[in-house]
Amino acid sequence: MFELKMVKGSTLQGVLEAILDLVNVANVDCSSEGFSLQALDTEHVVFLSLFFPSEAFQSYRCDEDRSMGIAIADMVDFLRSSNDGDIITIKATDQNLEDITITLESPDKIKTMAIDLRLVDATSQCLKIPDWNDMESDYQAIFCMPSEEFRLNCKSLSVIDDDVVISVNEEVISFSTKGESGCVNISHVMNKTDKPEKASVILTHARGPLSLTLNWRYMKSCAKVSKLFDQVKIGLSTKRPLMVECQIVEKGYIRYFVAPLKAEEGKTET
């Protein structure tokens, strides 16, 4: 049996809403540790990998590992009809491998709504991605920034053009774009003090200057998810896609991987 319980207002619904910008269905793998979800956008440019640990929920039970294709669009539609404070239960039994049941219960237990959602085939969403610990060393630069700053950057950059250059060296991280109507250049000086301020950008490591050019259209879902968290971690590499991560409690994460248009080592945009 698989069962999780949470109070509406938790991060899950917000995350699912943002995933809808990428896909309508996603594959969910459940284990006793928590559940993971993979989603690949229709253009195959963005890949999302998330892990919600069991600790993120009020209660969580998974007796046996199972994989389920979920119609995220239908699930979100149902969750939208609930009120804040409702208790959400998602349940799958060993007797019925074709459906999951989602129940919404008002805090005073007066009203209950339930839906049986038919499982779908979402195996096309699955990619084989290496463990982050094995991949991390391929990232020449990793830094953290307040997600509000990241979101504001996403907003101001999208005004001008789709192509955005992210450049990083040991001193500065910059986001820039230029188009017919002008240009935007945002730079953040890295905070290197022992006591970083809350609003600062903190460099985890950088091995020389590096710049990535991305089509910012593909960052829409990522910018939406970052709103739900305090911090985002961004990884740049010439061998790997751009990585943007938000941390869910201690062990969980949402990681976006976005294929860049261009990756250059040894130079930064001025």
Partner: peptide, 14 residues
């Protein structure tokens, strides 16, 4: 025009 690389250039199918 410019070709947008896909994520499958980086990660293979499971």
């Amino acid at each position: 025009g410019r070709k947008q690389p896909t994520i499958t250039n980086y990660f293979g199918r499971a």
